[in-house]
Amino acid sequence: MRPSKRDELVRKALEIFYRDGFHASGMDLLAAETGISKTTMFKHFRSKEELILAVLRLRDERFRGWLFRRMAEVTTPRGQLLAMFDALGEWFDEPGYRSCMFIKASSEFPDPAHPIHAQSAEHKRLLFVETEKIAAAAGAPDPAALARALLLLKEGAIVTAHLGHEAHPASDAKAAAQILIAAALD
């Protein structure tokens, strides 16, 4: 089935916003690069912010789906927690890697009450919920604390990979995660 113009716009806008940022990508640029007129864009979204929210929902769905599928390929919950960092390493090695879209969105829209900032925070909350479940399945006495610690390592690795001053941030974070997991589970 052929995607709708709306779906096509959201997919293409995701690529552009991820590459260039939200404020730097104006509607004229979006129209030029997507081949979808501004008139058509505004038929589907009342504002650029509504389009950004749709893009963030799509990115959330794709990213969480990809990450937790990759983690689920490992049979033990403990191994799944570590597999998060292997998956990150794959992501960091992609030619178009430009950091986390949600970190960037919350930086460009810093007011916690702003819907774009809130959508970004919701993505991080959903990552926590799933990671906490895996930590509980691994037998962590305090799965929330372990999930928070691992996700802090994840976020640090993402930023470090973006800045490019370390050669292997995912494997460095995985080494630290092994220590945290051992302390929590052994």
Rank of each mutant, 00 (worst) to 15 (best):
G35A: 10
I36Q: 00
T40C: 04
F42C: 04
H44R: 04
F45R: 09
S47R: 12
K48M: 04
E49Q: 15
E50V: 03
E50G: 06
A54P: 03
V55A: 01
L56A: 08
R57K: 13
R59V: 02
D60F: 06
R62V: 15
R62I: 13
R62F: 07
G65K: 07
W66V: 04
L67S: 02
L67A: 15
F68V: 09
R69G: 03
R70G: 05
R70Q: 15
M71W: 02
T75R: 12
T75W: 04
T75N: 04
T76H: 02
T76Q: 05
P77I: 12
R78I: 08
Q80M: 13
L81G: 01
F85Y: 08
F85D: 01
D86V: 15
A87G: 09
G89Y: 09
E90D: 14
D93I: 03
D93T: 08
E94T: 12
E94H: 13
P95S: 11
R98Q: 12
S99N: 15
S99R: 12
S99Y: 11
C100Q: 01
C100N: 00
F102L: 05
A105L: 10
A105Y: 02
S107H: 11
S107D: 09
E108P: 01
E108I: 13
P110S: 05
D111G: 08
D111I: 03
D111Q: 12
P112F: 11
A113E: 14
A113R: 15
I116D: 00
I116H: 01
E122N: 08
K124P: 00
R125M: 11
L127P: 00
F128W: 10
E132F: 05
K133M: 07
I134T: 13
A136I: 07
A136R: 15
A136V: 06
A138I: 10
G139T: 12
A140T: 07
A140N: 03
P143G: 12
P143I: 07
A145I: 05
A149F: 07
A149D: 15
L151R: 10
L151V: 03
L151W: 02
L152Q: 13
L152G: 11
L152M: 15
L152V: 15
L153N: 02
K154V: 06
E155H: 04
E155D: 03
A157M: 07
T160H: 02
H162V: 04
H168A: 14
H168C: 05
H168R: 14
H168I: 02
A170T: 10
A170F: 03
S171T: 15
S171I: 05
A176K: 13
